[in-house]
Simulated scan of single mutants.
Amino acid sequence: MPGKLIYLMGPSGSGKDSLLQLASDDLLANGCRIARRVITRSAESVGEDALGVTAEAFARMVEEGAFALHWQANGLSYGIPRQIDDWLASGLDVLVNGSREYLPVARQRYPDLLAVLLVVQPGMLRQRLLARKRETAAQIDARLARNASFVEADDGCVTIDNTGRLEDAKTRLIDLVMDARRRT
């Protein structure tokens, strides 16, 4: 029986990378792999477990069919390696760090995916974005406005609130993955 694709999304500052890092051992122990993204910026600069490549290398990888999923957002290119198809076919669940705007395309390719939206209360999200010191106040306001439109959309996503303790979000994520496994 094939595995389930868990498509995790959330705005910058919501704590996706921190959540994935904290939950990785438990996910692995429960038959769920976390796909390592390919991104056109240095992964070290964002604390994400990703492979940083040049725009040219990324374009070549797209041409060669290296990605199961790929998209552009915020001036960057993101790709999920085709390896996830092998994992899914072998019965493993796979968690990917996806894009909310790309969700409809991902659903076309993987109709049974579990869409999970990590949410954070706007005041806390603003604080986190300001603390990163990567964007201007105007850019942060634009991100918050964009986030509000996604949170209000009824797109069948399961939500995890990460405003509070990261451990609570981890528990909710593990429960969702285990529940998805029981249903397949």
Rank of each mutant, 00 (worst) to 15 (best):
N97H: 07
D161G: 07
P104Q: 11
A55I: 09
R181W: 04
M124E: 15
L130V: 15
A89T: 10
K4H: 08
I6C: 04
C157S: 14
L19R: 01
D26I: 00
L92Y: 13
M178Q: 15
P111K: 12
R41H: 06
N30K: 08
W87E: 13
P111C: 12
E44D: 15
D17S: 08
A68C: 06
C32H: 01
Q72D: 13
Y110Q: 11
G79I: 01
V120N: 04
R146T: 11
L176S: 04
R37Y: 03
S99L: 09
G52A: 06
G52I: 02
L103T: 13
E152Q: 15
S45D: 15
L117R: 15
D141E: 15
R109W: 03
E56A: 15
I84C: 04
K16C: 02
A180E: 03
E135S: 06
A153V: 05
A57P: 00
I80Q: 04
R33P: 00
R82Y: 07
A55H: 14
V62F: 01
P11R: 03
M61T: 03
R107A: 14
I140H: 05
C32N: 02
A35C: 07
A59N: 12
A169G: 05
Y78L: 08
Y102P: 00
A89M: 09
S99G: 13
V96M: 08
T184I: 09
R37H: 05
A137G: 11
V53E: 03
L176R: 02
M9E: 05
V53A: 03
Y110V: 10
G10W: 00
V105F: 09
G13L: 01
V151E: 07
G10P: 03
K133W: 00
A115F: 10
Q139V: 05
D154W: 00
L19C: 02
G75Y: 06
I39K: 01
L51I: 14
